[in-house]
Write a protein that binds this DNA or RNA. Structure first.
Lengths: 151, 151
DNA sequence: TATTGTTATACTCTATAACTATA
DNA sequence: TATAGTTATAGAGTATAACAATA
């Protein structure tokens, strides 16, 4: 038996922290007329033209919900659907110039929001937290099938 | 501008970690015939007989959803509803003997699951992570109205 | 009149099934 | 036959509104 120390379970602390982070980032993005999910999708699409299913698997969405998510970005002119020449069944989601500008601005907004929330930890604390979470995710936590929306 | 270092945003790491934690703990509790939410409610009720609204505010549920949540625990004989003598509008949720036994077992299951997931961090890493998250939650993160289900 | 608990209802989100067009 | 995308539909989960009992 490992000497588990006192205090609330870490899972509860993680849940509260994550929830508060998502709420703060979501509010900041809402002021830009964006959604956290839409931003994540935009980021994923910016990695290069990819099929909707590939994006869906990446973000942890269903292919059916991905349709509406892409529809939304298309309606705002941030991405375009293009038929892939090699396989005309797949629709490559490509980021437009406007989309990239919005994405850059949202990146800054998200980074600023996170920086403010992480301020009390100091540079060293932030690095430690990042390192610990990465170790956690590369351990048993990442081993289990960790698909899921997380959003 | 603070020197924000490289890597994925910490919010994303927190979200993935929290999601994986909840999934693992949820699976472990499911093997005991329990739900994460039901366990949290049972834990809150074990703090002493309290009104449903008080419990709802604590867990971050709506009072209307709390009704069904308590109904579920009552159906399993883990808690009882008793009218408060002082104010007969409120129903005090009290944990039964069976409820307390189930709660103790679930506490052990949750602790064991978390311990396994946190194993790679070592005792020192676990303490560091706990400390960092507590500092985070006592800072700006906890300052904002942080109500919400988190479950 | 205000508040606790409850019910009924509507709304949001997501997944399942069925369809199309390609392969 | 199998796959990418789409649509329609059903389900879970949640919140809003209205009601009962009590203060």
């Amino acid at each position: 038996m490992s000497a588990e120390c006192s205090g609330p379970p870490i899972g509860a602390l993680l849940a509260r922290s994550s929830h508060a982070f998502n709420a703060a980032v979501g509010e900041a993005l809402a002021r830009e007329g964006m959604t956290l999910r839409a931003f994540l999708l935009l980021e994923a699409a910016a990695g290069g033209p990819r099929s909707q299913q590939s994006l869906a698997a990446d973000i942890g969405l269903d292919k059916t919900t991905m349709v509406a998510a892409v529809d939304d970005l298309v309606a705002h002119g941030l991405v375009e659907r293009r038929s892939a020449p090699a396989d005309r069944r797949v629709r490559l989601v490509t980021v437009t110039g406007d989309g990239d500008r919005v994405r850059q601005r949202c990146r800054e907004v998200v980074a600023a929001t996170e920086a403010e929330l992480l301020d009390e930890l100091g540079a060293q604390g932030r690095a430690e937290l990042r390192g610990l979470l990465l170790r956690l995710l590369h351990g048993r936590l990442g081993a289990s099938g960790r698909s899921g929306s997380c959003v």
